[in-house]
Write a protein that binds this DNA or RNA. Structure first.
Lengths: 326, 326
DNA sequence: CTGTTAGCGCATTCAA
DNA sequence: TTGAATGCGCTAACAG
C-alpha cells in the first residue's frame, strides 16, 4: 500500500507539500497541486486513516449505539443518521446492543478505544458506571429516543405523550372500554413515558381502570406474546389491545391468535406504537402511531455535530401521526 | 485522556512493560502485571486504537457492506455477523449501500482508508473499477448472498435453486397454472439465479409459460408493486403470485389490493422468497422460503477470518426451508 | 523479565 | 510556497 512518501517521491516534492495538497489545507502552487494529485491517482493512494487520526487527534467517526438493529425503527433511524453524517463528512460506526446492557458497555469501550469523535446513544436502562464516567468526562454525546435518570444531555425522541393522546382519543371515539395494554420495562424511559401517559389518560377517555388489563413485556415480540397470554389467562377479554412498540404489538397479536384462535382474534381492535409496514394487511388492519425515525436520526447527528464544534445543542421532540386503519 | 506513558509512570515501570501487560503478549512478572493493571484501572486508561492500529498495521475491524439495512434479511445477517466477529475479537464497521452502486463505492473508499482487515460484501450489480482493483490487490474479502460476474472469491449465499424447487413443488401440488412472478434486476445474481431456476422449472411443474405473467422489480416494495400492476394491466389474473424477495412480495400484495380490491386479492395465493414475520397474519397467510440469514453472516465472518489468517476459505450454500401457510 | 529506542504514516510547525 | 524536522501513542526489536 503506497504511503504519502511514495506519492511525494513520484511527484518530486516533499511529504509536507504532498500532505498539504492531499488534505487541501494551506496554500500550494498549482504546479505541485497538479503533480501530487496525478501521482496519487496513479498510485491508487488512499490515506492511512489510523495515522491521520493519531496525528489529528480526531477520527471523523461517530459512534451510533442502537438497542436492536432488527427493529425497523432503529434500522430506519440508523440509515437516516448515516446519510446525514456522510453529508457532513463523518462516518458512522454502528453497533447493536441487542437490548443487552452488558453488550452496550462493551461497545462503549470499543468506541472509546476507537476514539470516535462523538456518540449517539439509545440507553438500555439504568446508567452503567462506564456510561456515567463517559458523560461526566464531557465526551460529546446525544441520546436517541430514550433517556435515563440523571443523564443531562440532549435528547432527540418521539413525543410519547402526544402520541398516547392520539391513541386515547381514537379508543374513546370507538367506544372501547376494555383495553389491554402491554408496556415496556420500567427502566426504559420510552416505556415509562408511554405507560404513564396511558394510565393518566385512561379515566378521561372512558377506559376501564382494571389493572388485569395491564402487563409489561420487554420491547420484543416474545415478551409481548407472553404478556398478552398472561392478561388473557386472568379471564378478561379486551375489545382492543394497545402495544407499547411494534415488536410488542406483534407479539400481542400472536398471543391473541394462539389463545383465542384466528376468528376471535380478528374481532379485537389492535393499535400500536410504531407503524410496521405489514399492519395494513393484518386482520383486522392495525392502527398505529407512525414516528419519524429518520428525523430523529438526522436531528441527533446535527445536535451531536453542534456539540463537537462547541456549539449548544437543544433537545427536540418529534411528533407522531396516527395512521387510522379502522 | 491518559496514555500508556501515564500508566507506566504511575505503576513505576517502563512503557514497554506496561504495553506487554496491557496487551498480554509476552511474559511479565506477577508484580508488574498487578501494578500496571491497577494503574490502568485507576486512570481509566483506554488504549488509543488509531495509534495501536498504526503500529501493528492491523485494526481488528472488519467492514460489512450490505445493500439495505432496512431489509430484515440483512439486519439479521448483520447482527449474526457482528456477534461472530465480536466472539473472535473483531469489531464490525457496518455500512449501508442503499442499493446504490455509487454509495457502495464511497464506502469501499472509507473502508480502505480505515484500513479494515477484511471485507464482507454484498455486491450491488456490475463490478465497479474500485471493487475490481480491491479484489485484484488480494485484499481479504468474501461475498454475501450475491455474486457478480468475474468475482472469484468465496461466496456465502442462499441455495436459490433449491429454494425455487420447493416453491415449484408447492405450486404444482396445489394445481396453480397461472402464476405471476416478479423477479429482480438481472444484474444481481440473486435475482438472476432465482428467475432462471423458476423459468427452467415452470414447464415441468404444469405452470403456464405465458410471459405476460412475468415482470421485474428492484428488490424493493415500490418496484414489486409497480411490476404487479403492470402484470394485471396486461389483462391476466393469476391464481398465485411469487415474489423474488420479501419487499418485492410486499409490493405485489399492495398492487393486488390496490388493483383488485381486498376481497379479490384475498383469493390469490402468495408465496415469497424471504419470510417476513407478518406473513402469517396476512390474508391469505403468505407461504414463504425462510433462509438462514444468521448462518450466512456467521459463515461469512468465519470464511473471512480464515482468509485473513492465510487459510483457505470455501464458498457455501445455505439451504432454505419452505414455511407452508396454505 | 525489563528498559530503551525506533518507527508506523501523517499533519503541522518552523525556517527559509 | 516549500522542505525539514517533530511528535501523536503505541508495539516490537534489541540489549541487558
Amino acid at each position: 500500500m503506497p504511503t504519502i512518501k511514495d506519492v511525494a517521491d513520484r511527484a518530486g516534492v516533499s511529504v509536507g507539500t504532498a500532505s498539504r495538497v492531499l488534505s487541501g489545507s494551506s496554500s500550494t502552487s498549482p504546479d505541485s497541486r497538479e503533480r501530487v494529485t496525478a501521482a496519487a491517482a496513479e498510485l491508487n493512494y488512499v490515506a492511512n486513516g489510523p495515522a491521520r487520526s493519531l496525528r489529528r487527534a480526531r477520527t471523523d467517526v461517530l459512534g451510533l449505539l442502537v438497542s436492536d438493529i432488527r427493529n425497523p425503527f432503529f434500522a430506519e433511524l440508523a440509515h437516516a443518521a448515516e446519510r446525514e453524517a456522510m453529508r457532513r463528512g463523518y462516518t458512522i460506526l454502528l453497533a447493536n446492543a441487542n437490548e443487552d446492557e452488558h453488550q452496550a458497555d462493551e461497545y462503549l469501550s470499543i468506541f472509546a478505544a476507537q476514539r470516535v469523535d462523538g456518540l449517539l446513544f439509545s440507553p438500555q436502562g439504568p446508567v452503567s458506571p462506564k456510561l456515567a464516567s463517559l458523560v461526566s468526562s464531557g465526551f460529546p454525546m446525544v441520546l436517541l429516543n430514550r433517556t435515563a435518570p440523571g443523564l443531562d444531555i440532549p435528547l432527540y425522541a418521539t413525543d410519547n405523550a402526544q402520541g398516547v393522546r392520539l391513541v386515547l382519543d381514537w379508543l374513546r371515539d370507538r367506544g372501547h372500554r376494555d383495553v389491554a395494554f402491554v408496556g415496556g420495562p420500567a427502566a426504559m424511559s420510552t416505556g415509562a413515558e408511554r405507560q404513564a401517559a396511558y394510565l393518566a389518560g385512561r379515566a378521561d377517555h372512558g377506559i376501564t381502570e382494571n389493572d388485569a388489563f395491564l402487563d409489561v413485556g420487554n420491547f420484543l415480540a416474545d415478551g409481548g406474546e407472553a404478556a398478552m397470554i398472561r392478561i388473557l389467562d386472568r379471564g378478561v377479554i379486551p375489545t382492543a389491545v394497545f402495544g407499547v412498540n411494534g415488536p410488542t404489538t406483534m407479539g400481542m397479536v400472536r398471543g391473541l391468535h394462539h389463545r383465542l384462535g384466528s376468528a376471535a382474534a380478528a374481532k379485537i381492535a389492535v393499535v400500536s406504537f410504531d407503524d410496521l409496514d405489514w399492519f395494513e394487511f393484518a386482520t383486522p388492519p392495525i392502527t398505529a402511531l407512525r414516528h419519524d425515525a429518520a428525523s430523529i436520526g438526522r436531528l441527533g447527528v446535527q445536535g451531536l455535530l453542534n456539540l463537537i464544534e462547541g456549539l449548544p445543542a437543544t433537545s427536540a421532540r418529534v411528533p407522531l401521526t396516527l395512521v387510522d386503519r379502522s
